[in-house]
């Protein structure tokens, strides 16, 4: 853009380099990719999850995730059809990637105090909510190895928008 006047190296030389350690300090709520990259050490079980849920989530999302002041998180049926009201789109019938649950709960919940859950608590909540939705049997604890392997029923009905596919022919959904 500034052609002839750009700095040596063809760059503008603006912005300050960060060390990898500084990047980590900045990245307080890291993104979790669908293949599990970004998942932290630690783990949690359905039972642990139930305790955390009842203490920290039930007030807004209702007993057993059945909905309260805010969204219900647990429900049937699968697959969603055009007769299922969108308030009944929940983890079990609509969420397509298990990693999204960890990513979202850790970054955004509980609503009024985000970022306060420990990694173990988040793993436990994920286990509990997947169990409540009938997606897992709860026999294994949730951790960086088990979580990405969970198959979400709703992944089967997810497709890429055709207009987007035309615009980005290389694009594949994970």
């Amino acid at each position: 853009l500034a052609g002839v006047l750009a700095q040596p190296g063809g760059r503008y030389q603006i912005g300050t380099p960060l060390t990898e350690q500084e990047v980590q300090r900045w990245n307080i709520r890291p993104s979790i990719l669908p293949d599990g990259r970004g998942l932290p050490p630690g783990q949690g079980t359905v039972d642990e999850g139930e305790r955390v849920y009842n203490a920290q989530c039930l007030g807004c999302h209702g007993a057993n995730g059945q909905g309260g002041v805010f969204n219900r998180l647990v429900g049937e049926p699968f697959p969603v059809t055009k007769d299922v009201d969108s308030v009944d789109f929940v983890i079990g019938n609509y969420w397509q990637y298990p990693t999204t649950l960890f990513d979202y709960i850790r970054r955004a919940m509980p609503l009024q105090a985000p970022g306060t859950l420990s990694d173990n608590e988040v793993y436990a909540l994920v286990a509990y909510l997947l169990y409540q939705n009938g997606v897992i049997d709860g026999s294994e604890p949730m951790n960086a190895q088990t979580l990405p392997k969970v198959q979400m029923p709703a992944r089967a009905i997810l497709e890429l928008d055709p207009t987007t596919q035309k615009r980005f022919p290389w694009l594949r959904l994970p």
């Binding site: 853009l1 500034a2 052609g3 006047l5 750009a6 700095q7």
Partner: peptide, 10 residues
Amino acid sequence: SVVRFKLGWV
């Protein structure tokens, strides 16, 4: 209308 002009410069 007013127009915005720009020139890169070191």
